[in-house]
Write a protein that binds this DNA or RNA. Structure first.
Lengths: 347, 347
DNA sequence: CTGAAAGCGCTTACAG
DNA sequence: CTGAAAGCGCTTACAG
């Protein structure tokens, strides 16, 4: 592969000059520029980004560590992150933690070794020593979706509280009183927040959320299936189940179908995270939609601000309830409001 | 960030010795090793992969350029590629072409600039000059799923012919005679092969596939919707529609539902590429399943073989029909065979 | 077993 | 406007 030296030789100039035309440095003569460009074309020269990175100490690369690529929510997030980054001249390397803290650390380590300019992470757990250390060492970092309390890192996320309140209003309006939740891991913020918000909203309606109706999942389909089976085995099974993410809802659907039961007549179902398939499931699933694209964009913006020395902003965007038919056919007594404007707060 | 010099100073040895212990070189005294390791721990030193890559001329990184990450088939493929690569000590950088040749080239270029050790690609089109040039220049490369005819690059893919024959038998057995297809882009191998295989299988049953029943899609949901609307507007709409991928099937489902029609009573639907959601759609969708995980693994194996100087193998794995309820309720007269063993052929 | 030195391919003050 | 030279952080023959 041709190097800058070959180009310099071909063009009859020094490597410094070649470098200057490649980097659009103003002080290059038209003549030199022309000859360099010609040499580049002849040799099919492409600058070696590895060498450039070593020299400039920047890779123009962002790392994105997410908990599960197979989750359509994260797939979409990853896609929008890549788009936004590309628009700003950055590439992104995705690390898939698969909800495993050890794998998460593996990716963080690899990314750090590659000297990415900044790290976007949706942590799987409460914060490994590695993550703490990376932040302390000054690696530009921002959390997306999930975050680690106590760490001084900007977070870009959706607030599901009001949408969850809308959901509870919807469920209670339909007459459901025995309501259960398939929670995510308590070690994740989204895992614990969604249960709490659900419990609080339920309390406003005087509906309790007993332990038996609080199943512990891990955000993956299999756990949704397992927890739902537990619910169905109860002497008094719940009338409605709220899955804290879309994959666990899929698992719940599996378990319900396996028993020969039907949604919503035998049991109601709702999910956090809306995805295109929910329109087509049997029945269409009522879900809470996050503004995923906007989250990705805002996260990149915050990270790049941080990298380029501007003060990064934490951003919280509202999620909203999308009512479909999986909770029952009644008329919704508490229609979701139109999305409220973006809230921003300096981190 | 601490460099190898700092470690050397801290340990009281030369950088050469530090490098040796880091790379498990045999000729290092126990004493030196101990001191270096201690220094590494004290400083929290992590070797700079950028510098190492520049020096060794290898990045231990694979590039994967796929046509659409949001397509669950490709998401799963990407995941299995990353897993297999990690097991062999490689990282992977994913480029999402979004079915756009220009974006595909952008990613190939970026990946090449980063000096990835090898490239896995599922081409969006018939082959850009850049791709041709990269292969000619000796970049280790293998095609996954889709390939470019005429290029001397190993191909790892699934053969859907026999599954498509099974599908046609299923459709005809159910009495469908007016059968349509939503094809993928003719410039992609999977786009053209699936129509041809479908047409040929239909011919064996004496069923024609007229132009009016051959819609041109682009593997994305919106095109499935648009083509299906065209079918439904026909004076004599088809009785069954075969979507050449899962996203176009989603779009078809949208269009059918928008007309207030029902699957399968009003119109039958089948898809290429099986995904978890198809079990839960209304109705569950009959689909052709590819051995996605195995494809990812085989592709990585082939590429790494090529990189490390071993002869790479092209691999073709069989796809299989998974009958569900979207084509009708009759008994399937032609049950799919159990998967046949892996076929391998040297490229 | 160990270290001094060269060199990977760039960029960028510095001098002219 | 241009070039010679230093240096980014490593690895690895070479000599001892």
């Amino acid at each position: 592969m041709a190097s800058i030296k070959d180009v310099a030789a071909e063009a009859g100039v020094s490597v410094a000059t070649v470098s200057r035309v490649l980097n659009d440095h103003p002080s290059v003569s038209d003549d030199a520029r022309t000859r360099v460009l010609a040499a580049v074309a002849v040799l099919g020269y492409r600058p070696n980004a590895v060498a450039r990175s070593l020299r400039t100490d920047q890779t123009r690369t962002l790392g994105l560590v997410i908990s599960d690529v197979m989750n359509p929510y994260f797939t979409e997030l990853a896609r929008s992150v890549e788009e936004a980054a590309r628009a700003l001249g950055y590439s992104v390397i995705i690390g898939n933690a698969d909800e495993r803290p050890d794998l998460q650390d593996h990716h963080v380590r690899t990314l750090l070794d590659r000297r990415i300019d900044g790290l976007l992470v949706s942590p799987t757990d409460g914060g490994s020593p590695l993550m703490l250390e990376a932040a302390r060492a000054g690696t530009p970092m921002v959390f997306v979706d999930r975050w680690i309390p106590g760490m001084d890192v900007p977070v870009v996320r959706a607030d599901g509280r009001s949408a969850i309140r809308d959901l509870v209003a919807h469920l209670c309006g339909l007459g459901h009183r025995r309501v259960a939740i398939i929670a995510g891991p308590a070690a994740t913020t989204t895992g614990s927040e969604r249960v709490e918000a659900f419990r609080e909203a339920l309390a406003e309606y005087g509906v309790p959320l007993p332990d038996a109706y609080t199943g512990q999942g891990d955000f993956q389909a299999e756990s949704g299936r397992r927890v739902t089976e537990g619910f169905l085995d109860l002497p008094e099974p719940p009338e409605a189940v709220f899955a804290a993410d879309n994959l666990m809802a899929l698992g719940a659907l599996d378990a319900i179908r396996a028993r020969g039961l039907r949604v919503p007549c035998d049991i109601a179902l709702a999910a956090f995270d809306d995805i295109p398939w929910f329109v087509h499931t049997d029945p269409p699933v009522t879900a809470i939609a996050q503004p995923t694209r906007e989250l990705g964009r805002a996260a990149v913006r915050a990270l790049v601000d941080r990298i380029e020395g501007r003060p990064p902003q934490s951003v919280t965007l509202p999620a909203r309830l999308v009512v479909r038919r999986s909770c029952g056919e009644g008329r919704d007594p508490h229609p979701p409001q139109s999305p409220t404007p973006v809230q921003r707060s300096t981190s």
